[in-house]
Amino acid sequence: MNNRLKVLRAERDWSQQDLADRLGVSRQSVNAIETGRYDPSLPLAFTISELFGLPIEAIFSRD
């Protein structure tokens, strides 16, 4: 799965730790999702979507 998390985060000038704090997860989680090593669960994907104010499909896409 591909995602635009890194771009969206950069647009807001947030560090990985900033995003992790806002999502209530660890920095390792944000790093793993950004680099495609881990696909988030549906609840976490919804949290990410709500945080950025975008639909899930605007953040995540199939390979």
């Binding site: 660890s26 390792q28 989680s29 881990y38 988030p40």
Partner: peptide
């Protein structure tokens, strides 16, 4: 553990 990645 509340962090799903670390739990994984």
């Amino acid at each position: 553990m509340e962090d799903e990645y670390l739990r994984m």
